[in-house]
């Protein structure tokens, strides 16, 4: 059961990470910015086309020129998930060797 638990736990953790950084991240940007950045979206706060005050995006918060949330989304959903996937593969390769033994 030890190996079984390892498989399930590692799979669960990796799936949650991949789901968050790949799939849900953009949604979290929407939900969390109101909660943690203490910005209440009101019509007065809106500039044309849902202005910056509602968002995590701040003008000086940029990486390689991109708004931070955009940069994180595209990098997490590409390099981030590739790394998580590779780590999961290495662990499963080892588990498979133990199962064979």
């Amino acid at each position: 059961m030890k190996d079984y638990k390892l498989e399930v736990r590692v799979t669960l953790i990796c799936f949650i990470i991949v789901a968050i950084i790949g799939g849900f991240f953009s949604s979290f940007v929407v939900i969390l910015n109101q909660r943690f950045f203490d910005v209440v979206p009101t019509p007065e706060a809106l500039v044309q086309f849902y202005g910056e005050t509602m968002f995590v995006f701040k003008q000086n918060l940029a990486v390689m020129g991109f708004p931070l949330h955009y940069f994180l989304l595209i990098m997490f959903s590409w390099i981030g998930v590739t790394v998580v996937g590779a780590i999961w593969c290495i662990i499963m390769d080892r588990l498979e060797e133990r199962q064979r033994a």
Binding site: Y50, F66, P67
Partner: peptide, 30 residues
């Protein structure tokens, strides 16, 4: 294209803004 972000924001201000839809839309995509 990071160095062109300021020009894009000046031209299309909402290009990088995520809150265009109810969050359920992003969850549906997931």
């Amino acid at each position: 294209y990071g160095d062109m972000v300021p020009q894009m924001v000046a031209t299309v201000p909402h290009y990088f803004l995520p809150m265009l839809e109810h969050p359920i839309t992003y969850i549906a995509i997931f």
